[in-house]
C-alpha cells in the first residue's frame, strides 16, 4: 500500500507517521465475514476518503477501529499502540484523542447543542465554566452555526445543523484524529460543498487527521488526499485519487467511470485539477 505523502499536511515528510494501522483484520457476523484480512494505513495530517459499495462494511470498519464491533482476529493500532492490548485507563486517554461524527449526528437529545459540545469537556477536563462556555461558543462558530443554535435542542435543528453541531462536539477536545461517517449525506449540494470546505479548513488549521467514510464523489475530489476503496472484505486500492481513477479494477471502474462518477471524472479531467 504505497502512497505519496499528503500534499497539504502540516507534518508532511518523506516518512509520514502512521496514525491508524489495521492489519489482517477479520470481522464477521454469524456465518458472514464482512472484513477478511483487511489492511489499511492512515497517515498523520491527511484526509483519507473511504469508499465502498453499500453494505460492503465501510461503517463496520469504522466501528471496528473505534472498538464498537468485536473483531475476530487481526491488529488495530492507533497512535502507534495496539488498541486491544491497552489497559482500560490508557484506552480512555486514547479515546479522548479522537472525535467521531456519527452518520446521524448522535447528539444527545436531552441536552442543548452547547451542553452537547461541553459534555466531553465537562466529563474529562477540569475547566472554569467561563472557559467552557467560551470554547463551546467558539466551536459553534467554527463549524458555521449561528450563536442562537447554542441553546436549541437537537430535535429543533435541521439535518445540516445537526451535522455541524455533531462535528462541533467531535472537535470539543481538539482531537488529533477525526472519524466522519458520511458527513455530507443528506445535505443539499451547497450545504455539502460548505461542509467539505469546513472540513478542509479545520483540517488545515487544527492539523487534523481525517478518516472519512463517504459516498460523495465531490468530497473525494475536493478534500481527500488519499482514497481507499473497500470491496470483498479487503481494501482493494489505496492511494491518491488519480491512482484509483487509473486502476483497472472492475469495481473501481464502474464506481468512478459509471454514469454518475464518469460525469464528475470527465469534468475534473477537463479542468485538470486532480
Amino acid at each position: 500500500m504505497s502512497s505519496s505523502p499528503p500534499s497539504n499536511s502540516a507534518n508532511a515528510g518523506d516518512n509520514p507517521e502512521v496514525i491508524i494501522s489495521v492489519r489482517d483484520l477479520v470481522v464477521g457476523f454469524g456465518d458472514k465475514l464482512v472484513m477478511n484480512g483487511l489492511n489499511l494505513d492512515v497517515y498523520r495530517g491527511e484526509v483519507l476518503g473511504f469508499v465502498g459499495g453499500s453494505g460492503q462494511g465501510k461503517s463496520v470498519l469504522t466501528r471496528a477501529i473505534l472498538g464498537l464491533v468485536p473483531t475476530r482476529s487481526g491488529h488495530i493500532s492507533i497512535f502507534g499502540k495496539d488498541r486491544d492490548a491497552l489497559p482500560a485507563d490508557q484506552r480512555k486517554l486514547l479515546e479522548q484523542r479522537w472525535g467521531v461524527l456519527f452518520q446521524n449526528g448522535a447528539l444527545f437529545s436531552g441536552l442543548t447543542v452547547k451542553q452537547n459540545i461541553q459534555m466531553p469537556m465537562r466529563e474529562t477536563r477540569d475547566l472554569s465554566p467561563r472557559l467552557m462556555d467560551e470554547l463551546a461558543m467558539l466551536k459553534i462558530e467554527l463549524v458555521g452555526l449561528k450563536p442562537d443554535a447554542a441553546d436549541k435542542f437537537p430535535s429543533e435543528l435541521s439535518g445540516g445543523m445537526v451535522k455541524r453541531a455533531a462535528l462541533a462536539r467531535a472537535l470539543a477536545l481538539d482531537p488529533e484524529l477525526v472519524f466522519l461517517d458520511e458527513p455530507t449525506s443528506g445535505l443539499d449540494p451547497i450545504g455539502a460543498a460548505d461542509f467539505d470546505d469546513l472540513i478542509g479548513t479545520l483540517q488545515q488549521t487544527l492539523g487534523l487527521t481525517v478518516f472519512m467514510v463517504t459516498h460523495d464523489l465531490d468530497s473525494l475530489f475536493s478534500i481527500c488526499d488519499r482514497v481507499a476503496a473497500l470491496a470483498d472484505g479487503k481494501v482493494i486500492a489505496a492511494g491518491p485519487l488519480q491512482e484509483l481513477l487509473d486502476s483497472p479494477h472492475p469495481w473501481l471502474r464502474s464506481y468512478f467511470h459509471g454514469v454518475r462518477g464518469g460525469r464528475l471524472t470527465a469534468g475534473v479531467a477537463a479542468r485538470g485539477d486532480v
Binding site: A10, E134, M137, P147, D151, Q204, T205, L206
Partner: peptide, 20 residues
C-alpha cells in the same frame, strides 16, 4: 505559521448572551 492560522481562527470576542 500553523499556529498563526489557529490564532487567526480563534480571535477573541464576546458572545451574544443567551436570548432565553
Amino acid at each position: 505559521p500553523e499556529y498563526l492560522k489557529l490564532l487567526g481562527e480563534t480571535d477573541y470576542h464576546e458572545f451574544a448572551k443567551s436570548s432565553r
